[in-house]
Design a protein around this nucleic acid. Structure first.
Length: 258
DNA sequence: GTTACTTCTGTTAGAACGCA
DNA sequence: TGCGTTCTAACAGAAGTAAC
């Protein structure tokens, strides 16, 4: 098995006359750099990929993007167009059948597929098997649910060498690979990425929420500064469930000064 | 700056149940 | 069957975080 850890840098639209960010709905983030590190099954670096992409939607670099990435218009003006870079990237990825793509967050995957779709390029032969390193790193560092760790923080916590600048696609791919190598364990298995243009909020969830009784009772114990009896736990359980129904709420009128 | 994602919270629709 | 009550699930919006 081989792993291709990749990172992208994007550009956005900027209207100089209005001094405002503008956005193409079909492609709000245009890829301007692809960087990747290929690892063998023993996590040795066996290849690198790095290319700027000539922007075709947003021709000039957004000031915010330029400030953060250090990429200037002259860096990308003579770069190959997306379809050419993508062809080379696909060649770099797909030397073996069971190649796993590794990314820091799923955002890069989404934008890669969105750019591919925007240019109407084929993506069936590109591996859909992926590992979200950020997700597993957040679990590794016991980050609370919903609070993902940033790449720079992960590198700092792991005491890894930071001799390369951040927000450069190749460097970020290298850092992601370093984190992946440090946190890897056999329980980390690839997922299959499915590209969808529908926002996740509109996808119906089928998970069932359960009451965390340990936390609920711990909170009351903390307030009362003592352990709870069985009877008290029963009452708290009942009160919690009844409270969720809002059945004892009454309407009140609020008068506001005019 | 914008966009995307996840989690949390409040609200509401509707299912499930009991009773007449 | 129809009505009222209880409860759950789904939804929308806000907040927090991270990406560029």
């Amino acid at each position: 098995m081989e792993y291709v850890v990749f990172d992208l840098e994007f550009n956005q639209g900027f209207d100089k006359t209005l001094n405002k960010t503008v956005s193409n709905e079909k492609c709000p983030f245009e890829i301007i750099q692809i960087g990747a590190i290929k690892l063998d099954s023993h996590f040795n670096i066996i290849g690198t990929f790095n290319s700027y992409v000539k922007p075709q939607i947003y021709k000039s670099i957004h000031p915010f993007v330029g400030k953060m990435t250090g990429i200037k218009s002259e860096d990308v003006i003579d770069a190959p167009p997306f379809h050419q870079v993508y062809k080379e990237f696909k060649k770099f990825v797909s030397t073996k059948k069971n190649t796993v793509l590794c990314v820091w967050g799923t955002g890069d995957l989404k934008e890669l597929f969105r750019n591919i779709t925007y240019y109407d390029l084929p993506y069936k032969t590109l591996s859909k098997s992926y590992i979200n390193v950020q997700h597993y790193a957040s679990m590794y560092f016991n980050n609370p649910a919903g609070k993902s760790i940033g790449l720079q923080n992960a590198i700092q916590i792991l005491n890894l060498n930071q001799d390369k600048s951040y927000h450069n696609a190749l460097n970020d791919a290298y850092y992601t690979a370093q984190v992946f190598i440090r946190i890897y364990n056999p329980s980390i298995v690839p997922d299959v990425y499915t590209y969808t243009t529908v926002k996740s909020n509109s996808i119906k969830r089928n998970t069932k929420k359960q009451i965390n009784y340990d936390k609920l009772f711990a909170e009351f114990s903390k307030i009362l500064q003592r352990n709870l009896t069985k009877e008290e736990k029963k009452i708290i359980d009942l009160a919690y469930k009844m409270g969720k129904t809002n059945q004892f709420l009454i309407e009140s009128t609020i008068y506001k000064k005019r």
